[in-house]
């Protein structure tokens, strides 16, 4: 069952000016309910423009978007409550923090939903727990926190709205490897525990490798492909020709293929690589290679 669907979605920037540009060009796709979908593409590929249509921040120049089968711009008016059903976490979300306590900032979204105080409190505490934001931190000023902590507070603020679909635009941008891993872990476990549909926008095929179930690849405003992660990695050649990085491990197995050493699966994570190599040798009947 698809939760989000676009039909011939096109978005034109600066319509009628000399700077007119098709940022999204005739994109039709369906995003399955549940699981993590990655959206990758280089800067200017239209991926950020595309996702801003999902919660109605941008209105398509032509084409339609459906949430759960309903046109979100029916009669030209935005579907009421759409932004609470489709949450969007922008790049560097820590820069939108404005309240003087962590609690109040996380509560901002739920408050806009006009929930009662008890429910708001429940949601704030739940989101805080999920992100390892301790109770003692809730009454502190968010501006005293470290960069990584601020980012978690900002993400918790969107999560507390309990959207059915949640979109992350480059959630790990600017973080160090440890911070990246922890953000991705949280996203993964949140997706598993809540059953919510998660969309993650990224430049990095490597990050997507260990995270996404399915991947949408955007190129110059057009949909290049939308498929299960292994199938997308089988097009590594074309993807790196677009100027995107493919993981080192994929390149190694590409080189091995040229040497006529063929594996049955696409390999794009280190652990999978280890497994495939061990199986390969076992099948060939050799010892473990030493």
């Amino acid at each position: 069952m698809s939760i989000l669907k676009t039909e011939n979605l096109t978005y034109i920037y600066g319509s009628g000016t000399p700077f007119e540009r098709k940022a999204v060009d005739d994109v039709s796709l369906e995003i399955e309910k549940g699981g993590i979908t990655g959206v990758i593409g280089h800067t200017g590929s239209g991926k950020s423009t595309l996702i801003q249509h999902f919660n109605g921040l941008l209105k398509p120049s032509s084409g339609k978007i459906f949430l759960d089968g309903k046109d979100i711009w029916e009669n030209g008016k935005i579907m009421p409550g759409l932004r609470f059903r489709v949450g969007l976490v922008f790049q560097y979300p820590e820069y939108q923090i404005f309240e003087d306590t962590v609690y109040k900032d996380i509560a901002y979204g739920p408050k806009n939903m006009k929930l009662n105080d008890a429910e708001i409190k429940n949601r704030v505490l739940e989101a805080a727990d999920l992100f390892g934001i301790g109770r003692e931190m809730l009454n502190r000023s968010p501006f005293e926190l470290s960069g990584g902590q601020k980012r978690r507070v900002a993400i918790a603020g969107v999560m507390a709205m309990k959207p059915e679909v949640i979109i992350f635009d480059e959630p790990a941008a600017g973080l160090d490897p440890r911070g990246r891993r922890s953000v991705f872990e949280i996203i993964k476990s949140y997706c598993r525990s809540s059953g919510c549909t998660v969309i993650v926008v990224s430049h990095s095929m490597e990050d997507m490798a260990g995270l996404a179930d399915r991947i949408i690849v955007m190129n110059r405003g057009r949909l290049f492909c939308h498929d299960r992660t292994p199938e997308v990695f089988s097009k590594a050649d074309q993807i790196s020709a677009m100027g995107l990085d493919v993981p080192q491990i994929t390149k190694v197995f590409e080189l091995l293929r040229k040497e006529n050493i063929i594996f049955k699966d696409e390999v794009y994570t280190v652990d999978h690589a280890v497994k495939m190599i061990l199986e390969y040798l076992a099948e060939k009947g050799g010892d473990s290679g030493c």
């Binding site: 080189l255 091995l256 040497e259 050493i261 390969y280 040798l281 050799g286 010892d287 290679g289």
Partner: peptide
């Protein structure tokens, strides 16, 4: 890897 894997084959 190619070296090891080909060895393994033989």
């Amino acid at each position: 890897l190619a070296f090891v894997l080909k060895e393994g084959k033989s």
